[in-house]
Design a protein around this nucleic acid. Sequence first.
DNA 1: TATATTCATCGTAAATCTACGATGAATAAT
DNA 2: ATTATTCATCGTAGATTTACGATGAATATA
Lengths: 112, 112
Amino acid sequence: MITLDPIDINDSKIKRTAELAKALGHPARIAILRLLSERNTCICGDITDVLPLAQSTVSQHLKALKTAGLIKGEVEGVRTCYCLDPDGMIELNELLAGFSKNLITLYNKNCC
Amino acid sequence: MITLDPIDINDSKIKRTAELAKALGHPARIAILRLLSERNTCICGDITDVLPLAQSTVSQHLKALKTAGLIKGEVEGVRTCYCLDPDGMIELNELLAGFSKNLITLYNKNCC
DNA sequence: TATATTCATCGTAAATCTACGATGAATAAT
DNA sequence: ATTATTCATCGTAGATTTACGATGAATATA
């Protein structure tokens, strides 16, 4: 029997990691991020055109990504230009990818 | 104006990446995975003791992680032994961490 | 000025998630 | 054999998510 310290699931790092993961937790949002990363120019309403979703739904997903700090949106006249947020990308790599990497590093293969 | 190819958000790689991210998208599940990675021995019911959640809730989170292929659970008498699933860890690194890494690599800083 | 385009937001229905207590099955301990 | 422990599952309430159409504000175009 092992005694373990209690875990604070309100720890800000844990919460932020989960928040970032949650933002990636829908196929449409994965597709949007990949799209934004692959284009040299910002994609505006074109995002809606390439996804099999209504405009309002895409707008909702964009908002989720923006709230999570993964993308930025700038109004350009009647359009809005979206692109990846470098700060969010860095966090994504440090927290989420870092977490994932640590799991393997720490994992004891003789466990089960 | 740029014309883009339609995106299939039912693409299996996109869907699996989102599925893995979704599994990480709750602080309790992040905490559980970290806990499992930090111990040399398998954790059994002790997980409930260190989380501020009811036993049934923890069991639900464990099931979510198991369904996503991130952990394994083996019954040991009256207890169940949980540990990370190596296959899931590999997928996590290849798909999710890989995706995160690609975003930065492909990202054009001259965008916005 | 009138019309069209773009996109955010509102309202809403259906699905999913999160949490809990209660229950029950399986095993261990007395 | 009886009792205690461990954990999964059920039922359920409340919150959140996801999807859509409708609407409206802002800007561009005719």
